[in-house]
Design a protein around this nucleic acid. Sequence first.
DNA 1: GTCTTTATGTCAGTCATGTTGACATATATG
DNA 2: CATATATGTCAACATGACTGACATAAAGAC
Lengths: 167, 167
Amino acid sequence: MTDIKTGINPLFLREEELRQGIELLFFAYRDFTAEPDAILAEYGFGRAHHRVIYFVGRHPGITVSELLEILRITKQSLSRVLGQLVRERFIVQRTGVRDRRQRLLDLTEKGVELERQLTERQRARIARAYREAGAEAVEGFRKVLLGLVDEADRGRFPSRLPARRGA
Amino acid sequence: MTDIKTGINPLFLREEELRQGIELLFFAYRDFTAEPDAILAEYGFGRAHHRVIYFVGRHPGITVSELLEILRITKQSLSRVLGQLVRERFIVQRTGVRDRRQRLLDLTEKGVELERQLTERQRARIARAYREAGAEAVEGFRKVLLGLVDEADRGRFPSRLPARRGA
DNA sequence: GTCTTTATGTCAGTCATGTTGACATATATG
DNA sequence: CATATATGTCAACATGACTGACATAAAGAC
């Protein structure tokens, strides 16, 4: 048997390593979503509303189809949540110019404010974790997480951050 | 304004960096849970069943209270899922020896088999991501994710993997 | 200009998983 | 003995997912 001196079987190590990864994802995600969930509850909203608000804020003018692809839920599921957000004036729909069948989605001022409030907690949590772990660790975090994402969606994460003209 | 040459505002960079982190977590978690979910559906189970099976498998003889602390759900929520798993013989309960009020939980052979089947996909996905990213990146991944976990639960992740005698 | 496809919306029913609140039982502990 | 703890259970409810069916408007093909 290998590693007799240390008493550690490398297969056990590997298994343990992988299980730690699984659990880190579980606990991190659990705690990462808990804070916004509490705020959402005050508005009578749930996590699904957060996801919609987040991605509409992130991609102004996003179409319903694009949103469905990101969330990987059915249009019926999205419809209820999106309908609420539109009725309560967190999101506005406008007809597409190039394609008049499309409903382009944007946050209202109210929506931007809620988005900011929700995401702020998560940004703070990530910022702290980044700061404590250091730049090199952040690079590794990104590399591994990107490897967990389905091939199809990796293109959403440019390896070099996009430059902006005239910043 | 800073960085006139590159046209990049460092505050924008930081914001973009943090949002990438948020989204990586979302997409990675979405894809990480999708495969087991499909298997669970064949058994008429959901993600909640997976979580229970996983942590009972991970901590044989775990008490109901300990499980509740990990999952952060109410005992009524757990009870439905756990009850099903016990009735369908994936999990057995035995009375605690030191404290006879406790119900210690263990996987049956059937439970171990399902756990293996479910977690195998996730292990494979993580193993691939680890392999592709390299050992250094894995270290960073762990460091950052651990920083996202609430203080209270960080002790679940020993910095040095535990040695086993006589492996 | 018709035909087909696409983008979106909607109605209806179901299921899984979480919640709160109230109460019950057995056992441990002071 | 009195109180606290570990667990279980009943009931009611909310959220967010699903399937299936059907409707409308606009785009695109031929």
